[in-house]
Design a protein around this nucleic acid. Sequence first.
DNA 1: CCACTCTTCCCCACTACTCCCCAAAAATAA
DNA 2: TTATTTTTGGGGAGTAGTGGGGAAGAGTGG
Lengths: 146, 146
Amino acid sequence: MFRGKYIYAVDSKNRISIPAKLRRHISPEANDTFVMVQGTAPCIDLYPLDQWQKFEERLAKLNSFVTKEATFIRMMMQHATDETMDAQSRIIIPHHLMDYAKIQNEVVILGALKKIEIWNPQVYDDYLNQVPETFEEIAAIVMAQE
Amino acid sequence: MFRGKYIYAVDSKNRISIPAKLRRHISPEANDTFVMVQGTAPCIDLYPLDQWQKFEERLAKLNSFVTKEATFIRMMMQHATDETMDAQSRIIIPHHLMDYAKIQNEVVILGALKKIEIWNPQVYDDYLNQVPETFEEIAAIVMAQE
DNA sequence: CCACTCTTCCCCACTACTCCCCAAAAATAA
DNA sequence: TTATTTTTGGGGAGTAGTGGGGAAGAGTGG
C-alpha cells in the first residue's frame, strides 16, 4: 500500500522520480511499469502494472458489441498509457496527461493505497481548500458505518 | 492488451503507422498482419490475425440459415481485408474503409484491449460528446455486476 | 496480343524524440 | 565524517514517425 506526500521536480524531459519509499511497495510482478490514466480529480493516477492488469481482465470480459460497454472501454482506455521506470527510477509523463493535470516544474506525489497520484502542487492545495467539510466531518460521514 | 490514444498522420498513399507502444502487444503469431473490418461504431476495427481467427470461429458457429445471422455475416465480412505491415510498421487502408470511417489526413488510433480502432478525430470527439451519460454513470452501469 | 496507365509494394532518407548511459548533487545512514 | 542511497541533470546512440522514389504487377482499351 502506498503512503505519504512528496514534493518532486519535473525535469526538462518531463521525467519524475518515483520516491524510494513508494518504490518499496511495488511488487516485482509490476515489472517496474506503471499504467497512467487521468484521474477522476484533476490529477494523474499511476497503477503498478500488475494491479492494472487485474482491472483490465475485468474489462476484457465485457461484450464490445454492446454499445454502452464498448463506449466504456473507449473512455477508459483512451488515456491509459504504460511507462516503465528507467535505471534511475524515473518515468516520463506524456504531454496530454501533463496538460490535463496542469503540471509544470514541480509535482506533488501522493501515495494513495493501491495507486499513486500526481498533482500540480497549486491545484492540490486549492482542491483541499475547496472541500466544504472539515477533516473531522468527512471522517464522520465516511467512516461512520461499521 | 492494447492501450492508449494516438493522433497520427495519413500520408498521400493512405498509409498509417501502427504506434510502437501498440506493436509491443502484438503476438508473433499475428505475423505482422491485421484483419480490418468496419466497426460497429463509425470507425475501422483492426484485429491482429491470431485474434481475428478466434473471432472467426465464433462467427462460424452462427447459423447462416437464420436470416439475421446470415445478414450479420455478410455485413461483417464484406469489408474484411487483411493487411500486412511494411518495414516501417505501416498498413494501407483500403478506400472503402476510408470512406466508411470518413478518414482524411489525420486519424485517432485507439488501443481497445484486444483490437485497435481507427477514427476520424472529429468523428471520434463528436461520438464521445453525444454519449448521454457521464463517464461515472456509464462506469456504474457497466461495472455494476459483481 | 500489346501498349499504356494506375496501383501496389519495396526501398531509401530525413527529422525528432525516446531511451540508455554516465555523473553530479543532495540526502540519508553508519 | 565517511559511505551509501536517492534525486536531479544532461549527452548521445538508436528508434519512431513521416515522406517520397521507382520497380513490379494488375487492369484497361485498342
